[in-house]
Simulated scan of single mutants.
Amino acid sequence: MRAFRITLPSAERYWTVVDDEYRIVGDVDEYLRHLRFGHDAAESTTKAYAESLTLYLRWCEHTQRDWRTAAERLGAFATWLRHTPIDPEAPLIGPGLPEVRGPGRINRILAAVRGFLRHSVAVGTAPPEVLAMLFEVSDNRHLPVEAGGEDGALHYMARPRHRLSEPETGVDRATDEEALALLGACRSARDRFIVVAMARAGLRRGELCGLRREDIHFVADASGLGCTMSGSHLHVRRRVNINGAWAKSRRPRAVPVDDLLVLAYDTYVFERDRCRPARECDFVLVNLFHPPLGSPMRPGAIIELLTGLSRRAHLSRRVHPHQLRHGFASDVLDAGGSIDEAQQLLGHARAASTQVYAHPSAQRLRDAVERVAALNRDGVSR
């Protein structure tokens, strides 16, 4: 069993699972197509799920279990994941040997398996009793009245039966000093534009690599471009892109930008125009220094770039693209912006998602305490 990428005639791509003779595993393929096109999931999501389901099917094959009902031994599968190497030819291995996967990775694999089996029950290819193997169902009938909800109705809750405890690590923000160090380590105008776009506009790497030239409205009045938003800004839109770039949100959004980002883009355009193959490409970010010249940059290349920049800048850690996005959100809030403003800029559907990006600076925390102290002093003086 292995994960395998499928390209459709429409140029859309998704990942599926094939056996050793490259025959598609029908039930898994149906689920992954449903995930990709029915739920509008990213190609990278189907890749992660295909790899996870490959492991599940391989375990079922090794242990001679039917994948439809093997959920009753999902705890044994988690143990197998913890100790079995990635090598597909590896034998069954149990506790006592070094761990090869951490709790977070195992939980993500289990989540993919639960999604597949839940879908299989819904379409009738797995028996309904599988759900009881996957989830522990409870209700709110024994909760205190105050905790039962305003409507007083009976509500049911399903909790996964198999989930490993994970340490709370969270994603840290990139500091302003780290962002400046990354800029100083850049060797091209394109790379400087990439760092500034993530640090000053909060773009995800998939959104950045999916930008087209028509999305850039770095003019005072964009009405001539058919846009009603004033001031320099860019548009983030979900599209099917040949480089695998994917905008996470279904809703398009316009992101205002500052003069630094406009300057970084203008400088990059001059550099880009010197590459003849790039002139015909509609993508903003293109390969300028290695083949295939002029082709769209891959989202994975952004990670490779920041890894190299972090090393060249002699930073104490590798800065990840998402840490620059967290830094942008924190800067918005530190500058007095509200949660709903940060939510719109980041493209979050819920404010709760934006709250995770709030990393108050030490000075902002100090100011909050001082305001409380000042209020108490004023109250005593009266």
Rank of each mutant, 00 (worst) to 15 (best):
V236E: 07
E136P: 00
R200C: 07
T45N: 12
Y31T: 00
P160F: 00
V113M: 06
H62G: 06
S330D: 07
A158L: 12
P321I: 06
R298V: 00
E30P: 01
R364F: 01
S361H: 12
A147F: 05
A313W: 07
V286N: 03
H34L: 12
L74I: 06
R200L: 00
A358N: 12
I106Y: 05
V332P: 00
V137G: 02
G26F: 08
L234F: 05
L225R: 15
R272I: 01
R105M: 06
T228S: 14
A374D: 13
E166I: 05
V332G: 01
R105Y: 09
G38I: 05
N140D: 14
H322W: 08
S230D: 03
L208Q: 08
A185L: 08
R212S: 07
G170Y: 07
L74Y: 05
T169A: 13
G226F: 02
L81Y: 04
C209E: 06
E178K: 03
F289P: 02
W15K: 09
I242D: 11
A174P: 00
T69I: 13
S361D: 11
Q64F: 08
S44G: 12
A351Q: 09
E168K: 15
T354Q: 10
V100D: 08
W67Y: 09
G206S: 13
N287P: 04
H142Y: 08
E61P: 01
T79I: 14
T7I: 11
T46K: 01
G224F: 06
D273W: 08
W246K: 02
L131C: 04
L315N: 02
V240K: 10
G224Q: 04
F270R: 15
H233S: 05
H142Q: 13
H155W: 10
F37H: 09
D334P: 03
G115R: 04
T169R: 15
G94A: 13
G226N: 05
D334Q: 07
G336I: 08
M1F: 09
S249M: 03
F270L: 13
A362Q: 08
V171P: 04
D19E: 11
R173F: 01
N243W: 03
L131D: 05
L143I: 07
Y49T: 12
G38C: 05
A11E: 15
P296I: 01
A313I: 09
S338Y: 05
L263R: 14
R251M: 09
D27F: 06
V171K: 06
D331E: 15
F218T: 05
V286F: 03
P360E: 04
M133W: 03
R238I: 05
L225D: 14
E341W: 02
C275E: 10
E304M: 10
D378V: 04
V28C: 10
A197F: 08
G308P: 05
F193L: 15
A199N: 08
Q344K: 15
L309R: 07
L288K: 03
A50S: 11
E43Q: 12
R33K: 13
V196D: 08
N140G: 06
R73Y: 00
R238W: 10
S10N: 12
A352E: 15
Q363R: 14
L375Y: 11
Y268F: 15
L333N: 08
